[in-house]
Design a protein around this nucleic acid. Structure first.
Lengths: 249, 249
DNA sequence: GTAGAACTCTGTATGGCGTACATTTATTGA
DNA sequence: TCAATAAATGTACGCCATACAGAGTTCTAC
């Protein structure tokens, strides 16, 4: 692979974007045929992260899985951080396609559920040390799908973006909270509930106490929080409708 | 410090909770007076993370900052993971106190703004590799404050928790997205906008294209996203009011 | 008063990590 | 055929978390 600082003044961000979009400096014909590829490396890394978590991902493991030495990876990917950004984009499938004439609320709910599922499949993606916002083609397409649904609600430009970010953020946040709870290991929820009971005294945390004592396991199970997400999203969309009605009427 | 596996069957989670709440096995009187403390160690670690980010936090740096050897830290804290959980709780101040008779919406908005500010002050806290949900006294008190505000909206038990988690999640999520944008370094936003312009073509991403081309810098600035958060939260609360009215009326 | 238990702290060592750099090997255009 | 180019390897550095052994300090039990 040729020198990838083709335009010497190119920023890290720009180079990352090139990589994500497969914009490569044209490679010369001399030298040995490359045995690896950015795609193969990304796939291998993804496999490791999905199976063992992001903490277990190392350049050495990726290389070993592919049958090469560690340093050969660096012929294709500038470093671990960029590899992770490639992984994030590769883990994002095409977004759900709304049916013809589907209500915007249904589309958005489906989108949120699909996003949730995505984070469930790739829990590491929430804990990833990244400095850049999502700029890969798949991640952009995913977000575009949310915006397209929201645009059908009657909101205008800036508000569409605002709501899109809000919904994305809330799903991410919920997923993060739940994954903290369930972690890789399953069934920590009961133990968590037990600790809650130990700690949450009624004087200091009256509201929390009331809810926790009533039904702790239920309040903290994965299923419960999935329902919380639906509840919040529905209230949010109710509010949007009211907002649109008021602006129009 | 005495053997901390006092009750041998104690789980990791239980031991972490003990640590967070300062429940220590009573320390014997023999041996040298301890020169360090859990608090001092936590404070030092917090200082490093706030200044240099979580990636720069190492046990060696904490120890050096305190003038001790690396391993002496392990007399007070079982490992790095638990230290991070201590840091998370230590970074959480007492929550804002609502004025007498304050509207629940105002309380919740204030709470959300304060939470936002908290993440702005300690950006590392969003990227932290943690397996446990927040169980420290300060983090619980913070969340209790949100629940207390929401409880005044007229929602009932389970719905209060659902909405509390939803709002917390959305603030966390928004903060995470913004911190990806601005990072530690400031003013990546314009460069980000430039890359967006390069990539977002109108055929593939029509909605995103429309918004981005209209006012890219504005759409991605920190201030803008802060306003997005307010917008989303208001729509959410509108929806809650409608929900409560319907259930009551 | 003193032996030794209990405790803190240090020193050393292990195995892992990301990646810089120099070298070897394979391929091809001149 | 040979210099250029690129892929792949080997070696090395400095960092990391933490296990373990031992040194030094303080108090309890006798």
């Amino acid at each position: 692979m040729p020198d990838d600082s083709e335009a010497p003044g190119k920023s890290d961000l720009a180079r990352t974007v090139d990589l994500l979009w497969g914009i490569e400096a044209p490679r010369g014909t001399r030298g040995p045929r490359p045995g690896l590829s950015v795609e193969a490396i990304t796939r291998a890394a993804l496999e490791i992260a999905d199976a063992e978590g992001i903490a277990a991902l190392s350049m050495q493991k990726v290389a070993k899985l592919l049958g090469y030495t560690t340093m050969s990876i660096y012929n294709y990917v500038p470093g671990k951080e960029q590899l992770i950004e490639l992984m994030l984009d590769a883990a994002t499938p095409p977004p759900p396609v709304p049916a013809e004439g589907e209500d915007w609320r249904v589309s958005l709910e489906r989108w949120a559920a699909a996003t949730w599922e995505l984070y469930r499949l790739h829990p590491w993606s929430l804990k990833v040390p990244t400095a850049n916002p999502p700029l890969g083609p798949n991640q952009l397409a995913w977000f575009e799908a949310a915006l397209a649904a929201i645009a059908r609600s009657g909101l205008s430009g800036g508000d569409v973006m605002a709501l899109g970010l809000y919904v994305l953020a809330s799903v991410r946040g919920q997923a993060g909270l739940v994954l903290d709870l369930t972690g890789t290991r399953d069934a920590t929820a009961p133990e968590f509930a037990e600790q809650m009971r130990r700690i949450v005294d009624s004087a200091r945390f009256p509201v929390l106490h009331g809810i926790t004592m009533a039904a702790p396991e239920q309040a903290y199970g994965t299923a419960a929080i999935q329902m919380d997400l639906d509840f919040g999203l529905r209230r949010l969309m109710d509010g949007v409708e009211r907002y649109v009605e008021r602006r129009v009427g």
